[in-house]
Amino acid sequence: MRERGRVTDDLVGLVGVAVGDRELARRVCEACVDGLDIDGAGMSLFTTRESRQTLWATDEVAMVLEDLQLTLNEGPCIEAATRGLPVSVPDLHHSVETTRWPVFAGEVAERTDAVALFAIPMRFGATVVGVLDFYRTTAGALGAVQWRDALAAAETAALLLLGQRTRPSDLVPGSDGEEQARTTDGHDDGWFSSALSARPEIHQATGMVLAQLGIGPEEALARMRAHAFTERRLLIDVAGDVVARRLRFTEEMR
């Protein structure tokens, strides 16, 4: 029987804490460095709406690693984002990876003392929201328990980031942010727990709204949360209405 890991537990504690993207990324990265056998962490955003950008890096080396990969367009972070799968490189200097990313591996050796690299995509369904990157100055894979914690942490971080970016109080015109942060996010509007447990209605409804409006999954989710917010209902109930065809989203609707 599995139990929730330490880092993931820390991150779940951040639900309902209203902070900006960067602050959230800082807390996630620091929780990872505290709880995992790594020396540094970084987080980059990969959304289709904006260009890729690094939100946070815990130290100079982590920052150089993010910069190199986004500039060279190669490395574990890029691979994790493109393939949607985690990448583990226990020893950059003694593995086949160096042939996959020759320029990147050379630069890393020259400019940093990082040896082991790990990149985990932060996903929402088929969408990669961003990538969580770790490095260590000694070779070796992360242990099974830590790796599991790291994967769960990346999933949790994805939902936190998505929660942030689709927060109803930022989307509903004329709303009083402070008040609403308390009434919706403070009570989690059922969003986080139902997304974390992968309640199928949330994902089915996301697909339906995405098709109704010709938008992406992230925006479809934002529209549903905004609707739940203005109607003072739980997201899961709104999703249930969409799936039952009691509710359709239209361009005019906000």
């Binding site: 929402f124 369904g125 088929a126 992968a198 199928p200 994902h203 089915q204 409804a205 996301t206 697909g207 339906m208 709204v209 995405l210 098709a211 109704q212 999954p217 799936v243």
Partner: peptide
């Protein structure tokens, strides 16, 4: 499985 749930939603709607 999540990807499939989303795709079910899209196809069901379209």
């Amino acid at each position: 499985r999540i990807v499939i749930e989303q795709a079910k939603g899209v196809l069901s709607e379209q």
